[in-house]
Each structure stands twice: as structure tokens, then as C-alpha cells.
């Protein structure tokens, strides 16, 4: 039986797809057979971040509608043999997703995979609800700003009331808080919420803090999940995040304002 993890947020553009790519790659590199599904029908970009957009033949919706079998749509990652991608359709709309269709695919994948990562679209409507409905656990991606935190709270409410687990009185969906685009300089200046503030408002265990980083942009432009950039702060923070997801206890890093090194101070930086 696979563990189904939804990466969700409510608010758009907070780093769900970046996180889905990094976490799925991280789990696969740790030896777990993993598949990442793009639920963002009509706006697919997971395949771009995963650098497989030129290999998409069939997609998620094709499989749901019976136009293709699952194996035809799954794309094997070229860097890590444990990782597969199920891309979204660019041309259909979100209503193509049905509970039965999604369940059918997840059931099939469950037989073969250890982890199923669902990259949710933004919002709280149908697409987002389909992505989280069958989840066992959720990574709630939040930026350190009030509106993002508020939307995360909303999504947490939906996870605890409208998921399969909630509707069938099973153990609740396990919640993880992931703070991304964290910028200690702006927190110090009072322009962003602190980690303590966010934890206080959401009351969900903190899985990780990903710093605001140029490495993320570089990574998505080159089609390499940022976790592969082992030298970067964001890459390391995602690696720690995956470690914690797998039960390791690791301290949170990159929370403080970095003191400029001597060279940077001399030459400016």
C-alpha cells in the first residue's frame, strides 16, 4: 500500500509544484519507488520542472477517460529510476477529474509504488479537492504572509472535513506545515510573518522551512528539481524536509539572517 501525500496550499504560486518535484525526487533518491501526479489540469507545469515535457504522450485525463492505460501515461525519470511522473492534460478542464476516476488510478498506482505525491492546483475548488480527497498525509505549503497562512488554514479545514478519511471516519489526514520562500531579512524587518507566528496560527507540526532562493529559479529553468542542487540552501532544506518526512529528526536550518562573509564584505555582495 502506497502512502498518498498531497502538496496543497489554497493560495497560488506559493511553491507547491517546486515542492512536489523536490520531495518526489528526494523520496525516490532515498530508495522509495515514487510517482508524482500533476493535478493542475490545464496548467501543467510539473513536467517542465521535471524536464520531461517533451516526452508526454498520454496524460492523467486520458487514463481517467480510458483513452490510455496507466503504463502508457507514466513517464520514467531519466535521473532516478525510482521516480515516475504522471503529467496533467493541457487541453482538458478540471471537471474531467472524477472521484471514481482518481480512485481507480490511485488504486492501480498503490500496488506498484511506495509514495504517491499529488501536486494540487491552487484554490479550494474541484481540482484542489480531487487532489487531496484520497490523501493519507498533506504537505501544506505556506509563504510567510497573512493571506497565504489564511488560505492554508482553509485547506486544513477541508482536509479535516471533506477528505475520504474524514468522510469515512478514519484516522485524520496527517498534516505537515512547509514554509517556503522564507526570507529572514524580511522577517527581521517585520515585512513577513515569523515561523513562530505561522506555527501559532496554524497549529500544525513544522516539516520544514525552505528559504527564498535563486537556486529555485535556476532549477526550474534547467528542469532539475532543486533538491538535486546539493550546494544550494533550498536544495539542502528540501533534503532535510524529505529526511523528516521519512522520520529523521533534523534541526531546521537557514532561519537566521546570514552574516556576510569576509570576502563578501570586502568586495560587496
Amino acid at each position: 500500500m502506497a502512502t498518498i501525500i498531497v502538496v496543497t496550499s489554497g493560495k497560488g504560486g506559493v511553491g507547491k509544484t517546486t515542492t512536489s518535484a523536490a520531495v518526489s525526487m528526494g523520496l525516490a533518491m532515498a530508495g522509495h519507488k515514487t510517482v508524482v501526479i500533476d493535478f493542475d489540469i490545464g496548467l501543467r507545469n510539473l513536467d517542465i520542472i521535471m524536464n520531461c515535457e517533451r516526452r508526454v504522450v498520454f496524460d492523467f485525463v486520458n487514463v481517467i477517460q480510458g483513452d490510455a492505460v496507466l503504463n502508457q501515461a507514466l513517464i520514467k525519470d531519466k535521473r532516478c529510476e525510482n521516480l515516475y511522473i504522471l503529467p496533467a492534460s493541457q487541453t482538458r478542464d478540471k471537471d474531467a477529474l472524477t472521484k471514481e476516476g482518481v480512485k481507480n488510478i490511485l488504486d492501480q498506482l498503490s500496488a506498484d509504488f511506495e509514495y504517491i505525491i499529488c501536486d494540487s492546483p491552487a484554490g479550494i475548488e474541484h481540482g484542489a479537492q480531487m487532489a487531496l480527497y484520497f490523501a493519507d498525509s498533506a504537505i501544506v505549503v505556506t509563504n510567510p504572509e497573512v493571506s497565504s497562512v489564511r488560505d492554508s488554514d482553509r485547506i486544513l479545514g477541508i482536509l479535516q472535513s471533506k477528505s475520504y478519511r474524514a468522510e469515512n471516519n478514519q484516522a485524520p489526514v496527517k498534516e505537515h506545515l512547509l514554509i517556503t520562500r522564507f526570507d529572514p531579512v524580511r522577517v527581521d524587518r517585520g515585512e513577513m510573518l515569523s515561523i513562530a507566528d505561522i506555527e501559532d496560527i496554524l497549529a500544525v507540526p513544522l516539516l520544514g522551512v525552505i528559504p527564498e532562493s535563486q537556486a529555485v529559479l535556476n532549477a526550474s529553468n534547467s528542469g532539475n528539481p532543486v533538491i538535486l542542487d546539493e550546494k544550494s540552501d533550498a536544495g539542502q532544506a528540501y533534503k532535510d524536509t524529505v529526511g523528516r518526512l521519512l522520520g529523521e529528526e533534523l534541526p531546521h536550518r537557514f532561519l537566521e539572517v546570514q552574516k556576510k562573509g569576509l570576502l563578501k564584505r570586502v568586495f560587496g555582495g
Binding site: 488554514d153 482553509r154 479545514g157 472535513s161 496560527i201
Partner: peptide, 22 residues
């Protein structure tokens, strides 16, 4: 959570947790 509503009809309401904005 935000967006949720609880109604204790003919009853008191005891919440052993937090009530979010919204």
C-alpha cells in the same frame, strides 16, 4: 479552521482547540 462553521443547537459549545480567523 477558516471557512468552517460550527453550530451547537440548543447546546453550549466547548472547543478544546483554536478557532481560526475566518
Amino acid at each position: 479552521r477558516s471557512g468552517q462553521q460550527i453550530y451547537a443547537k440548543n447546546a453550549n459549545l466547548l472547543i478544546m482547540n483554536q478557532v481560526s480567523a475566518g
